[in-house]
């Protein structure tokens, strides 16, 4: 079989293993009190070297497996440092900082995500991270972050810490505008957004099955069903496109950039739309800080700030017609 979109046995294994690790180490309930995640357990699992070759201290999996694991990471609301460290290790390796790459893969050092904001950078959930990966529109840079803080703020009020540092060139270790590196970042960011979109769908469906009103579970009402169906459509669409993009990028196909751009464009729309619908299905509880669903909404906003989103209109479409319509009629 040359075309087969079923998960392979090996893919199922890694997904099952990652899911078990995340259930134990990063249960969603931990987010009731939001502190930056200790990413040591994720590092011990091998999360930051999944896609690196075995010779480089990685696990030698492909981008497809790595993306699938980041979907699960998104479902568990793991700190954005999980993305930044995985990408930072890649960037360090590509820039010739092999020792730093090894330390990141081994969980001896961590990277947090940085979002440019005017002439400063917002460090998201820095925790123990000594490095930051700053996502700009068309490139990203790996930099050291010093101990001194300019200020500390709270992201969207859900407890994740945000530190503002000045944007200076001092401390920059590596910078990349390499298209493949940017595409990998967009792929993994989108994978986590898909995790958010799936998690809020499942939360809403589970709640609609137990919450009773007018003597029946609210999931029996069509208005609720249709909200849930819309979440399912969005998640399915994104999941299929994630597979397509990951395969294209893994195999070095010429439509790789197009597929990733399509994915990255849809991912924030779907994650945010699903989070909105899920809050709605939860009713009053959904608006409370008690329920987990608002954390997913905020995570979706955060993740949406990361990565570049190449303009899909600049890329050749794989299914472009062979003759222009004007030449036909």
């Amino acid at each position: 079989m040359t075309c087969d979109l079923n998960l392979s046995g090996e893919q199922r294994q890694i997904i099952d293993a990652a899911a078990a690790m995340l259930r134990t180490e990063y249960p969603v309930d931990r987010r009731r009190r939001w502190v930056a995640d200790d990413l040591a357990a994720a590092a011990a699992f091998g999360m930051f070297g999944l896609g690196l070759p075995e010779g480089d201290g990685g696990a030698g999996f492909s981008l497809v497996e790595e993306a699938l694991v980041h979907v699960l990471s998104g479902r568990h609301l793991v700190s954005s440092g999980s993305l930044a460290t995985a990408l930072g290790a890649r960037l360090a390796r590509a820039a010739g900082h092999a020792e730093l790459a090894d330390r990141l893969v081994a969980g001896e050092a961590f990277v947090c995500a940085g979002v440019p904001a005017g002439d400063s950078v917002l460090l998201m959930e820095r925790g123990e991270a000594a490095f930051a990966l700053v996502f700009d529109n068309r490139d990203f840079e790996l930099r050291e972050v010093g101990a001194a803080l300019a200020s500390e703020e709270s992201a969207l009020g859900h407890g994740a810490s945000v530190e503002r540092i000045p944007r200076v060139s001092k401390g920059v270790i590596a910078r990349s505008a390499e298209p493949r590196m940017l595409a990998i970042a967009d792929l993994l960011v989108s994978a986590q957004l898909l995790g958010v979109a799936e998690a809020v769908r499942d939360l809403a469906v589970a709640y609609a099955q137990v919450r009773q009103q007018f003597g029946q579970p609210i999931g029996g009402f069509q208005a609720i069903k249709h909200h849930c169906a819309n979440m399912a459509i969005g998640a399915e669409m994104l999941s299929c496109q994630l597979d397509m993009a990951a395969i294209a990028l893994r195999d070095g196909r010429e439509d790789g950039a197009f597929q990733v751009a399509a994915l990255r464009r849809l991912a924030p729309h779907v994650a945010l739309a699903n989070a909105r619908l899920s809050i709605q299905v939860h009713g009053g509880v959904g608006f409370s800080a008690e329920a987990a669903v608002h954390h997913y909404l905020k995570q979706a906003h955060l993740l949406s700030r990361l990565g570049s989103a190449a303009d899909i209109l600049d890329l050749p479409a794989p299914l472009a017609p062979l003759v222009r319509v004007q030449e036909r009629n």
């Binding site: 669409m237 496109q241 399509a262 849809l266 209109l313 479409a317």
Partner: peptide, 19 residues
């Protein structure tokens, strides 16, 4: 741009349905 991305995703869904 969004329609182009959605059409790409629809194609991906079509293939998954088959494969």
């Amino acid at each position: 741009a969004t329609l182009r991305a959605e059409a790409a995703a629809l194609r991906a869904m079509t293939y998954r349905t088959l494969l």
